[in-house]
Design a protein around this nucleic acid. Structure first.
Lengths: 128, 128
DNA sequence: TAGCGAATGATAATCATTATCACTATCATC
DNA sequence: GATGATAGTGATAATGATTATCATTCGCTA
């Protein structure tokens, strides 16, 4: 049984207070900044536990995992390959089509991940 | 300028001859099996080069990259979280919606990745 | 108060991937 | 044919995110 310990509450608090997509290091740094001392392994375990309990959301990028607040409606992500900015979007029609695909194949969906890679409006403007 | 060296041709040949989704280790093992000796770093570089040239396709999973033949029409993937099987599907309507989302935000799409996670038909049947 | 399961923290280990570096192959040009 | 420029190779060290280990500690319940 997972526990919501003081350390995990501190992690949750940081993530809940912003719209950022945090990685483990950033969370650890923020904790240090706030004068809270938590081992890096505990940060990783805490993030995994919170995500498992549905208290935060996780997205898996190529190199690392990032976590964000869970109290938002479901959405997917646009990722700028130039500056790394992460934007969110919501397109229920896409989800509907995904469900249809899965149903056609007798596949029981547990989750999905849709990432769109490209240039955000700012980086597109700065392109040669 | 990228070159299609003998090593890279050997790698390409392996991938083109099957419908598997290969990771670097599997390719290296297959090469060894065929009596071809290629350094592991060269396998990684070869796979990256071939993908960059569009001769093979790459998909980024959570833990590692996998590569597959490029001479298939575009598709996305269903991944069984139980047995690791990778199925392919094609849903042009989803791509259209993705383009629409990007256009709405002035985002210039370079690529995308859509993964559906769940239980394949076999594993679903075997569930308790 | 004792005992149990879960969590913590420091640190070592893992694993895919990338960097380094000395050397080689290819190819155009002198 | 020699020379250079450029890219590739292979062995191996390094990187970086994450996970495992293990002794210790916390919060509970019997």
């Amino acid at each position: 049984m997972q526990k919501l310990t003081a350390q995990r509450q501190a992690i949750l608090d940081i993530i809940n207070r912003s719209d950022k997509h945090w990685d483990a290091d950033e969370v650890a740094f923020k904790l240090k900044e706030k004068g809270i001392s938590i081992g890096i392994a505990t940060v990783y375990r805490g993030l995994a536990a919170l995500a498992e309990q549905g208290l935060i959301e996780s997205i898996q990028l190529a190199d690392k995992k990032r976590y964000e607040r869970a109290d938002k409606s479901h959405h997917d992500h646009l990722i700028c390959t130039e500056c790394g900015a992460i934007e969110e979007f919501c397109k229920p029609e896409i989800e509907t089509l995904q469900d249809k695909v899965a149903a056609e194949r007798g596949f029981k969906i547990q989750g999905h991940q849709l990432l769109l890679f490209g240039l955000c409006i700012g980086c597109k403007a700065g392109e040669s």
